[in-house]
């Protein structure tokens, strides 16, 4: 079963003659452990797609099904819980809280979910170690490089053990070397930890780390192609128990 599936997903902004169709009947399914890049020119609907899947915006028509459940049929509290536990977000500008250190930033989603502070921090430090930042847990965001801040953000996205990571231009604010590091880390997130990743990017070199690329234009999917070797895809699926 796909971790996320959209059916006829449509988002229209404005009304009447001012109506703009940002997303036009998009059907897309992402399997567990799959790393999918979404590419296309500015205004093609990539970010709208991510926002709708993440429950940050509501569709005009069509549906978003996560774990087999249509989020349109959930209460706001259920959507919030789903967003907190099943989906991790990674943004272009990291969105870390400046007054909290790396471990506290990573622990935050757990604390908000009612986990005790000490337990949340211990889990946070485990995830910081997995993204290679075990020695920097006590640093504030302004004491970290851009690449390190994005690693903290990825650890924060993973700390609630989500099945799906939504990443919107995760390397858009990084130099090319840090971008490559972050793309490799996302690849590891999908291969080693079996999480599905849906990543919006305009950078072909970053998209090339994915298993599959979805190309969008004018709110529609115009091409959807698998670029990773068949063996690599099989290994990823085996890891998450699909084979």
């Amino acid at each position: 079963m796909p971790i996320v599936e959209t059916k006829g997903l449509t988002r229209v902004y404005g009304e009447g003659s001012n109506a703009v169709t940002a997303l036009d009947a998009v059907d897309l399914a992402v399997e567990p452990g799959e790393f999918v890049a979404v590419m296309g020119p500015s205004g093609c609907g990539k970010s709208t797609l991510l926002n709708l899947i993440g429950g940050l915006d509501a569709p005009t028509s069509g549906s978003v099904v996560i774990d087999g459940r249509d989020i349109a049929h959930m209460s706001e509290a259920e959507v919030t819980a789903l967003r907190r536990r099943r989906i991790g977000f990674v943004f272009q500008f990291f969105n870390l809280i400046p007054v909290l250190d790396a471990a506290e930033n990573v622990a935050l989603p757990l604390v908000l979910d009612g986990v005790k502070a000490a337990e949340a921090k211990a889990t946070a430090i485990e995830w910081l170690a997995r993204v290679g930042l075990q020695d920097l847990a006590g640093r504030k965001p302004d004491e970290l490089s851009g690449g390190q801040q994005q690693r903290v953000a990825i650890a924060r996205a993973l700390v609630t053990d989500p099945a799906l990571i939504l990443a919107d231009e995760p390397t858009g604010n990084l130099d090319s070397r840090s971008s490559d590091d972050i793309a490799r880390l996302l690849k590891e997130v999908s291969v080693t930890w079996g999480r599905a990743i849906l990543m919006v990017t305009h950078d072909p070199r970053i998209a090339a780390h994915a298993d599959r690329i979805v190309f969008m234009r004018d709110g529609r999917v115009v091409d959807d192609t698998r670029i990773a070797g068949a063996q690599e895809a099989r290994d990823a699926m085996e890891k998450v128990g699909l084979l």
């Binding site: 793309a183 072909p204 090339a208 670029i227």
Partner: peptide, 8 residues
Amino acid sequence: YRDLHELT
């Protein structure tokens, strides 16, 4: 893109 994937 497959080439780019392999090269990276």
